[in-house]
Amino acid sequence: MSAALDTLKLSSAQIAWRAAQDMEDGAYVNLGIGFPEMIAKFQPEGRDVVYHTENGVLGFGEAPAAGEEDWDLINAGKKAITLKPGAAFFHHADSFAMVRGGHLDLAVLGAYQVAENGDLANWSTGKGGVPAVGGAMDLVHGAKRVAVVTDHVTRKGEPKLLKRCALPLTGLGCVTRVYTSLAVIDVEDGRFVLREKLPQLSFEDLQSVTGAELKIHGDVADLAVPEL
């Protein structure tokens, strides 16, 4: 990415803020470990969201204060959590029944690559080392909406949104929306459809750092995010 794009782009917190705005009141949501977890911090006021974690908790809240941790009460990232009123515990098979059975409204994951047909690669760089998949391959097949939060390009400036993924796949045709550092893009009928872009960024510049054609159906809104 050019130096100009690099100064324009949203921070991780701003991408998380934007993704949080789409969580509906009453939604059951799973936020993937790492970057997606940040979305909970920006849950819009007045909306009730119930968070699910793979290891068997519905309705957890923020991290406890240091020294207040109970290590029997953690999330999928092995971080200590607290409970909100109305929380529930369950075993792993029930937890993944919630996932695969289509009971979650939204799952948000990170990505190495996303393809215009909705394929996601987020578990293996294909370079050897120790493979580890966790719950990602299950999560992409259960939630009604599967969203990705990601930088628009890699650290080397290569597009992460592609015609086809080159890295090992997590799931086929599973992604419905991508929140990037430059734009909000839907996957519809095997194409990337641009919904929002940073207002200072031209369509041509955005297309030049995207590895597949960006379609425009209807209005493209400004991607407007507060300073965070």
Binding site: H92, S95, F96, G129, V130, P131, V133, G135, M137, D138
Partner: peptide, 19 residues
């Protein structure tokens, strides 16, 4: 141990492992 080839690994998606 894994990188030295001294332990075998079968990687299973978490929900599949549970089921």
């Amino acid at each position: 141990l894994y990188l030295a080839g001294k332990i075998e690994l079968e990687i299973v998606p978490q929900g599949t492992l549970a089921e």
